[in-house]
């Protein structure tokens, strides 16, 4: 299971980069076979059997929300930068998260970091430390930054 999944990912990325011709398919298959054996033995990780389902859920539920958030907050930061008086109130906010798995936390931290205005600096167990450009917003006051993403990620990885 683990070997097959690793092989498929490697083979897919090889073909993506090299293009599909007969020679490339043969070389790609050999290279990814060798690499999948090496990687599966040397690196410890687990393949989730429900991964395709989660990927589909991820694309349908998470990506649109994320893109809208990304554009909204980027425009917000751009307006602050253009504004001659530079209206920022920086600060660090401690946020409690209910997510448990490492990958879920990574996803949450990445989402928080990619939406400008908030930047996850450190993580300590169930607490995220977030630097934000404006501590006077309602989200930051209530220590609820990223709550929207957290809900969606929680549903995907239930």
């Amino acid at each position: 299971m683990k070997y097959v999944a690793t092989f498929l990912v490697l083979f897919g990325s090889y073909l993506l980069l090299a293009g599909i011709t007969l020679e490339e398919v043969i070389v790609g298959a050999i290279v990814s076979l060798v690499l999948s054996v090496i990687i599966s033995n040397m690196v410890s990780y687990n393949i989730d059997a429900k991964f395709p389902l989660r990927l589909a859920l991820f694309i349908v539920m998470y990506v649109p929300v994320f893109l809208i958030e990304l554009i909204k907050s980027n425009v917000n930061i751009a307006l602050r930068v253009i504004n001659p008086s530079l209206p920022i109130h920086p600060g660090f906010v401690k946020v409690k998260t209910a997510l448990t798995g490492d990958f879920q936390k990574l996803l949450l931290a990445n989402s928080i970091t990619l939406t400008p205005g908030t930047l996850s600096v450190d993580i300590d167990g169930e607490y995220l430390y977030i630097h934000t450009v404006d501590v006077t917003t309602a989200d930051a006051k209530a220590s609820k930054i990223g709550a929207k993403f957290e809900r969606i990620i929680g549903v995907i990885f239930k």
Binding site: H89, G91, F92, V93, K94, Y129
Partner: peptide, 10 residues
């Protein structure tokens, strides 16, 4: 900074 929750930790 106007609020620093990180200080106690780091």
């Amino acid at each position: 900074v106007e609020r620093d929750d990180l200080k106690e930790f780091l």
